[in-house]
Design a protein around this nucleic acid. Structure first.
Lengths: 204, 204
DNA sequence: CCGCCAGAGCTTGCATGGTAGAAACGCTAG
DNA sequence: CTAGCGTTTCTACCATGCAAGCTCTGGCGG
């Protein structure tokens, strides 16, 4: 879709559209090819591996900072989310669980009280289809239950103000999720071209 | 300086200038206030703390990935940089050492072979006056020598393909640097308003 | 002397027209 | 039927003019 077309749709001129697209390009969501057009980018598996590696570190930092701050309010929200997640898991309500997972990480990153961390994390998250990937990873047997357990471990470490344990728990959780995702994708192999980079997901 | 003035300087129209400024705003280098003007942002101590926390994690990931890949070429560059750094440190050539430190981290992040990590790291680094801060941290007695030792520890861990050791060494280095910086700033107290956030630099 | 208000001079935001370049289509020649 | 070339049509790019809003200053009234 061209700038002019988007301008018509939004009832504005091309200039604000251009600026918005430019921003989206910087965030890695679209790719602008000069004199040709603007296209939404489908992240390759290589990119998904890269994104998951970076987001693991940022999540870990978030967990560490939340534990360090020890804000009771944040902790309360996390524990409420945890019990809701447990309900959803027992009811096998994957749809709802995916939403709660997103909220869990969102609360964590916001609770870290670090604006730079938040913005970089959000840019990362916008780049890969989070919901779809989490949904895929939850196709693994028992993943729902173990995922809840991992969230609980993180929350416990935070409640205990144990920064190292919080970070480790979060990183363990990221790794388990990544492995579950890789297993699901390899199993269904929906559109996987026997990509060697895919195995990097399962590695480590 | 206004858009029109910049346009005159660069001999172009306001449009490309606007786009460039917009990008710089997203990267956090300038702040655009609608109908008022565009201003370069001086990072507060709060922001420097935040930036250092995030960059510590990204550097740690870089070190881990470099160790994991075990690219001999990258390792060779690091070792060359290390010996040059030792020379500069022995000669008390702070100016040259600062440049080598920058190169060391640059090679590390590029050697990680992770495009997302690289771009986020660069955006972070552009936001705080790296050279000035490193220079300040090196004012601490013996910091030059210990800094070299820390770089050596990182390089050794990478040479041994020990991912955990590489990450730990890098994080330790980041923390030591941060502490040295805090000590220097508190000592000179050039423009520090007895800021409580400054102490967060020294913490942990 | 102090406070307030109006207006001029800035600023960025937005709309629009013309331009250069890339791609796709169709025609023509082999 | 196919390959190559020219033309048309699409795209993003850039320049420019106009509009809206903020700031600062000068003058006026209390």
């Amino acid at each position: 879709m061209s700038e002019s077309a988007l301008a018509s749709v939004f009832g504005t001129s091309r200039t604000p559209i251009r600026e918005a697209l430019k921003q989206l390009e910087i965030e890695g969501l679209v790719k602008i090819i000069p004199r040709v057009g603007t296209f939404v980018t489908e992240p390759s598996w290589q990119e998904i591996v890269e994104l998951s590696q970076v987001s693991e570190m940022l999540s870990a930092l978030a967990a560490r900072l939340v534990a360090q701050r020890g804000d009771d309010e944040v902790l309360a929200v996390l524990e409420r989310n945890l019990s809701q997640s447990r309900e959803a898991a027992e009811a096998q309500d994957v749809q709802r669980y995916v939403g709660l997972v997103r909220e869990f990480h969102d609360v964590m990153v916001r609770g870290a009280n670090n604006a730079k961390l938040l913005s970089h994390y959000q840019i990362l998250m916008n780049q890969f289809p989070y919901t779809r990937l989490v949904f895929a990873s939850l196709q693994q047997p028992d993943r729902l239950a173990t995922s809840v357990d991992e969230h609980q471990a993180i929350t416990r470490a935070i409640a205990a103000r144990d920064v190292d344990a919080a970070e480790l728990a979060m990183r363990s959780h990221s790794n388990q999720s990544r492995r579950a995702l890789a297993a699901s994708v390899l199993a269904t192999s929906e559109l996987s071209p026997a990509d060697s980079t895919l195995k990097s997901l399962a590695q480590q």
